[in-house]
Amino acid sequence: MSLLSVEQLGKSFGGVVAARGVTFAVDAGKLLAVIGPNGAGKSTIFNMVGGQLAPDTGRVVLAGEDITATPPRHRWRLGVGRTFQIAQTFVSMTVAENVQMALISLNRRTRAWWPAAGALYRDEAVALLERVGMADNADRPCSELAYGDVKRVELAIALAGTPKLLLMDEPTAGMAPKERAQLMELTAGIARERTIGVLFTEHDMDAVFGHADDIIVLVRGEIIAAGRPAEVRNNARVRQVYLGGTEIGARPSSQAAEAAQP
């Protein structure tokens, strides 16, 4: 049984079809990438899996449980952590406090009136930040961080919920190439180490072909190809979609892995 299975998902806005008959599955410990040109419906599918959007048709099943109508906050408790295309953090808080908030929520203490929040789960939060390489910045306000660092914080926040499934909407958007590789390497490492299934969208083909275990290709809301990176790379329709058939994602992953080492 797959960790996440998405069955016949469909959504349209007004007359515009954003997703139709989308079916795929993510296994624990694996990375599935969703790619496609702008407006292909990647974010729509993402938000339906995350719960931010309700699908018109189809089902979303997490570890055997139908979560199609489950609001995001409940999906989180079922083990869905996510990052956003435009990073969403609590900008008035420090880096550590952002992660502490997730831990406070995980432990259902958001209604606590008395203890000082700044001291709660601090060590756990720092440990998580350590894992994403942000421990040194624990006490900096989140609003001061470089964008790439904010993405790392988001990852730490998502990990705080001990997720089974990680949703990452364009995790490397707005980053320098070196940062991108580092973040993807980090994510892949964590996913394998904790057997977390990762669903991510990405424009950067190096990131996709370097780290994804499987890829699905979306065009106008429909899956036109799915499979191992090598299969997708050689798919004729995919080549056609991606500008005149040049080979995509040619850079080998080992190179990216080296770059990720500090």
């Binding site: 969403q88 953090t89 900008v91 929520s105 008395w114 929040a117």
Partner: peptide, 24 residues
């Protein structure tokens, strides 16, 4: 200064983020 106030402030900063970490 307590989790309740932090939670409110978090929801003010980003409702989407708050929702995505299980906050009602």
């Amino acid at each position: 200064y307590a989790p309740f106030g932090y939670t409110l402030r978090g929801a003010r900063d980003s409702v989407v983020r708050a929702d995505a970490i299980g906050i009602d």
